[in-house]
Amino acid sequence: MRKIWLILPIVAALGVGCLTQTPGLPVEPTEPVVQVQEVFGVLDGWDEASGVARVRTSGGGVEEVRWPSGASSPSDRMGSLVRASGVRDGATLQIVGETVSFEERGAIVVVSPVAGATVTSPLQVQGFGRVFEQTLDWRVKDVTGSVVAQGYAMTDARDIGQYGPFQFEIFLPALADQSFVLEVLTYSAQDGSEQDVVTVPLRLLSTATSTFDVYFSHAQKGSNEDCTRTFAVSRTVAQTSAVGRAAILELLEGPTLEEAAQGYATNIPAQAGLRSLVISGETAKADFDSGLSAVAGSCRVTA
Rank of each mutant, 00 (worst) to 15 (best):
V110L: 02
L175T: 02
R2P: 03
S193M: 12
E98P: 01
T135A: 10
E64K: 13
Q262A: 14
T207W: 11
F102M: 09
L19S: 13
Y264D: 03
A260R: 15
Q162L: 01
G254M: 00
V65C: 05
A107H: 09
G24F: 02
L14Y: 11
V36K: 09
V143F: 11
M1Y: 09
S210C: 06
G145L: 08
V140H: 00
V87A: 06
F132A: 13
L204W: 10
V198G: 07
A246G: 07
Y264S: 07
D159R: 14
L205E: 15
T230Q: 11
A157V: 04
K285G: 00
V39Y: 00
T256C: 01
I268W: 13
E104R: 14
V36N: 08
M154E: 12
E31D: 01
P255K: 06
G129S: 15
Q134T: 12
E194A: 13
G145Y: 07
E103Y: 05
T57R: 10
M154K: 12
Q190Y: 09
V111A: 11
V295I: 12
T209I: 08
E28N: 05
G97R: 07
A238S: 15
W46C: 03
Q262S: 12
P23I: 03
A53D: 05
S101L: 10
Q126L: 14
P201N: 08
R105Y: 07
F102E: 05
E38G: 06
I95L: 14
L252N: 03
T92W: 04
E250N: 11
D44T: 12
Q126N: 13
G60W: 01
A53S: 13
V198R: 15
T199K: 12
T256A: 01
Y152F: 13
S223M: 02
F180Y: 01
R54F: 03
G60P: 00
I95P: 02
E31R: 00
F171M: 05
L204G: 10
L292I: 15
R66A: 08
D287Q: 15
S188P: 05
L277A: 11
S276Q: 13
W67I: 06
G51M: 02
L8D: 09
